[in-house]
Design a protein around this nucleic acid. Structure first.
Length: 462
RNA sequence: GCACGGGUGGCAGAGCAGCUAUGCAAUGGACUGCAGAUCCAUGGACCCGGGUGCAAAUCCCGGCCCGUGCUCCA
């Protein structure tokens, strides 16, 4: 069984191979921390967390780098509005990000470089691009000149230079900047008065948006690496700009082996985004859903497809998640085997994940095992599949202690419940349904759910 | 407009040439005082029009519709 990965550049699933045997260098574009993270961000980092986990499960040593764009126009807008330093805005939203990701079992990347800590490398790269004739100094900054490498255009989006020149409703003429051509893009922006800035050979300023990723990947991985991930919206111009910068700087191509782009989270059919204002922050969502139930929902669709978030969709995920955890909890204490075909399920699970990380198909296998009921064999299977590979399981300790908690809560009321139940059974014996139902209502008011079965009533705390 | 992706049962959502997807809902049954839970069973789909195959939801061509990108964006 071989892993196949969809590469945006070749527009095809290809057998996965890496530059160095057994090692994967993976870079994923991180957030610009100017607001708390929303579910669209969550989906992206959840998707690449699964990639990370599955590559490791497949025996690769993964070096995972994810950046923070901790200086940018929007961060500056907010810092100005609040009268605080830009780093305060960035740091608080980075903290929010970590908290949200930790809650959703997202494993940490190996490195989280920040733009503000990569300035020397960025300046080096821009200098090289100028020296090699790929960049020029304009009135307000340094720009990459697209016409110096036209053959690199459109690798991720299929667009041609002419299309973009002609496109976008005539915004072509006025670039409003020192660009020679509107398709050129900024490598270094000279600072406006009172803006934070760093010294450079071209004057005080800060990096353009695209250059950081090229500089960071070069710094951490060298001239080429295996996987570059990010949201679908980053394909153009951001990722195409990276191709220009990196390959023109080093002369090596392709800079990236596999370009991976996750689909969007939609609300009512439209992309969830900060600019549309239709977003839920991750912590808003946590108010209504367990973080891992949310993870379940967001992994229920293959990463490249859009997800339309509806209350029904999330409710479905909630109940699947609860069922998963309850079967896992029951399996931890189970003696017998479930009788499920775990070997078959493992095989299907691996085949699903090997097919471009098809978490949907993999989750179906998990659901099949969950449906087969609790068993000692099931606990281990769920830990390695639903847990290690998909990250959907709380830790064993957490599940055990919540079971213990539930047990002790149950034993606290057990005496009273048992005596009420005995009374109810007596009423039922005598066909006194009104009294029986009244007792059931009383128990319900205590939070006790009674279910009559063939062997008499069973009860649990709702 | 151009580029990229998509249109599957009541809903969500896989599959991407031959084999029940799955879940929820629905229907029938078992159990049941009722309720709930559980179990068993059942029905139900591939946007439209052509084409290529022994065989097409799946490939090709042409429509129509939707989303995203072309501007900050995961």
């Amino acid at each position: 069984m071989t892993l196949r990965v969809y590469d945006t550049r070749s527009r095809d699933k290809r057998a996965f191979s890496t530059l160095e045997n057994g090692r994967v260098r993976m870079y994923v574009c991180g957030i610009t921390p100017y607001t708390p993270s929303h579910l669209g961000h969550a989906r992206c980092y959840l998707a690449f967390d699964v990639v990370h986990r599955w590559l490791e499960a497949s025996g690769y040593d993964v070096d995972y780098v994810q950046n923070f764009t901790d200086i940018d126009d929007k961060i500056l807008d907010i810092s100005e509005a609040e009268g605080v330093d830009f780093s305060e805005v960035a740091n608080r939203n980075i903290a929010d990000y970590y908290e949200a990701m930790d809650a959703m079992n997202v494993l940490r990347a190996d490195s989280y470089p920040r733009v503000t800590e990569t300035i020397p490398e960025i300046i080096d790269m821009v200098s090289t691009l100028i020296d090699k004739g790929h960049a020029y100094i304009g009135d307000d900054g340094v720009y990459f000149e697209i016409d110096t490498a036209p053959e690199k255009y459109g690798q991720l989006t299929g667009q041609t230079l002419e299309m973009v020149r002609a496109g976008a409703g005539g915004r072509v003429e006025d670039t409003g900047s020192g660009k020679r051509d509107h398709r050129d893009f900024a490598l270094w922006k000279l600072a406006k008065p009172a803006e934070p800035s760093w010294d450079s050979p071209w004057g005080a300023g800060r990096p353009g948006w695209h250059i950081e990723c090229s500089a960071m990947s070069l710094k951490h991985f060298g001239e080429q690496f295996d996987v570059h991930g990010g949201g679908h919206d980053l394909r153009f111009p951001h990722h195409e700009a990276e191709i220009f910068q990196s390959e023109c700087c080093t002369g090596r191509e392709p800079v990236v082996g596999y370009w991976m782009h996750n689909g969007f989270v939609n609300v009512d059919g439209e992309k969830m985004s900060k600019s549309l204002g239709n977003f839920w922050t991750v912590s808003d969502a946590f108010e209504l859903h367990h973080p891992l139930a949310l993870r379940y929902a967001l992994l229920s669709v293959p990463y490249r497809n859009p997800i339309d978030l509806t209350p029904e969709f999330l409710a479905d995920a909630d109940s699947h998640y609860e069922r998963l955890v309850s079967v896992y909890g029951a399996s931890l204490g189970a003696d017998g085997e479930s009788g499920a075909d775990l070997a078959g399920a493992s095989e299907c699970f691996a085949a699903a994940m090997d097919d471009d990380f098809n978490t949907r198909a993999a989750i179906i296998e998990v659901q099949g095992v969950v449906a087969s009921g609790a068993g000692a064999d099931v606990a281990a299977w769920l830990e390695s599949h639903a847990g290690d590979a998909l990250g959907l399981l709380p830790s064993r300790d957490e599940v055990m202690s919540s079971l213990a908690e539930a047990d002790s809560a149950k034993s606290e009321v057990a005496g009273k419940v048992e005596s009420l139940l005995a009374e109810r059974e007596a009423a039922r014996e005598g066909s006194d349904w009104a009294r029986a139902d009244q007792i059931r209502d009383e128990l319900a008011a205590m939070g006790v759910v009674v279910e009559d079965g063939p062997d008499g009533p069973v009860w649990h705390l709702g």
